[in-house]
């Protein structure tokens, strides 16, 4: 589903952020991406989203090599992935409902479809009662749930999350990770870059370790602390 083949990424500044990175995440898999700060996790995610271009190598998503994808086709690639960030990225002047519906407007969904789909994902993330509230009236965990609902609303085949729990306390972080796990159980592929060591250790999912831009370990049922 997400395959990297000998991918290198060198930024304009000269930083080699990724070196010869290869891995393959299967459909329906749950994979953590771990590594110290500056190791290249966000860079890897940006490459998946085609926010950045690889310097060399190939990236295959849903069986399609995206390396030479035309700019105009990128939006359609992104519709197959739901994205979640550390800072939630909600629109402050829109309600919870509107924030989620927004993602459907953008892909030109019918009003009927929007009216049916939005309450459904809101109940999935446990926010049915807060549809009319504004982001500023929600806790961090609740805001991240809204972001997750927005990522899910167009039924993407994968969820890509960059430190989704980075701004949350440990309990709330667990809630969000469990939610991601639940989403994964329904068949959605999930990739999570994170520093949440304990959660990674306990969840027993695949863990891809990156260090200074190199994959140093790829554990099918790993934890953070495995020996290299």
């Amino acid at each position: 589903m997400i395959e990297f083949r000998k991918v290198c990424k060198k930024y304009g500044t000269g930083t080699m952020a990724l070196k010869n990175v290869s891995f393959n995440i299967q459909k329906g898999e749950f994979a953590f991406l771990v590594g110290s700060s500056g190791s290249g996790k966000s860079t890897l995610i940006k490459l998946i989203l085609k926010e950045e271009e690889p310097t060399s190598g190939n990236i295959i998503i849903n069986g399609k090599d995206t390396t030479f994808l035309k700019q105009g086709k990128v939006p359609y690639l992104r519709r197959s992935m739901g994205v979640v960030f550390q800072d939630f990225r909600l629109l402050p002047d829109k309600t919870v409902y509107e924030n989620v519906a927004f993602a459907m407007y953008i892909v030109k969904a019918t009003p009927k479809h929007i009216r049916r789909q939005v309450p459904m994902v809101l109940s999935l993330v446990g926010l049915s009662g807060k549809a009319k509230m504004y982001p500023s009236e929600l806790s961090g965990g609740e805001q991240q749930r809204v972001a997750l609902a927005r990522a899910l609303v167009n039924n993407p085949s994968m969820i890509i999350a960059d430190e989704p729990t980075g701004n949350l306390d440990p309990d709330t972080a667990w809630d969000i990770m469990s939610l991601l796990n639940e989403i994964n159980m329904r068949g959605t592929t999930v990739v999570v870059a994170t520093h949440a060591k304990e959660i990674v250790d306990q969840m027993k999912k695949r863990v891809i370790h990156i260090d200074k831009g190199v994959i140093v370990k790829d554990d099918k049922k790993g934890g953070y602390n495995c020996e290299i």
Binding site: G72, P75, Y76, V83, L91, I106, V107, K108, N154
Partner: peptide, 16 residues
Amino acid sequence: RKEISIMKYVGATNSF
């Protein structure tokens, strides 16, 4: 710009 970047992540086309 924040809204625009969100739109891009959700897959909005440039014309949209």
